[in-house]
Amino acid sequence: MFYSLALSIMLSGFWLVNSGHYNPLMLFFMLVSVLFVVFLCHRMDVIDGESQPLNLTFTIPTYWLWLAKEVVLANIAVARNVWQGPESISPMLVYVKAGQKTDLGMVIYANSITLTPGTITIDQQGKQLTVHALTREMAADMLKGEMDRRVSRVEG
């Protein structure tokens, strides 16, 4: 029930942002469509803590700031590699263990790796992630496990 309410509030906010028409008829249509979507989600059985990770609300913003900084730095490194030409890259495969306890934590970790240019998660078996890194330095950074620790802390 709590998650249904949270989903309704989120969907209403989404509708209000995208619409720009606020007369009573339109707001009635909003109510009908939000209730219909919540009913559909309820039927699909996807309303739970996994689709709406509300327990991360207070821990994840600082992680996002850190991730944004990492993404900018990695972008500059990859841009330098592009202009130096194909000779400057040394692709490596890195096998790392994900230290997170929940599936959601592992998804955040794997997606953060992919979001950072220069490293991409290409496979996952159990807790072992296969990562393709563009250069040796990026592979070495990956092995230090800084991101892994931070995601584990976010997960709580």
Partner: peptide
Amino acid sequence: PQVVGSVKSESGGA
């Protein structure tokens, strides 16, 4: 993938 090598984390992450 064409790679120059591969490494495996021994410590098992964090």
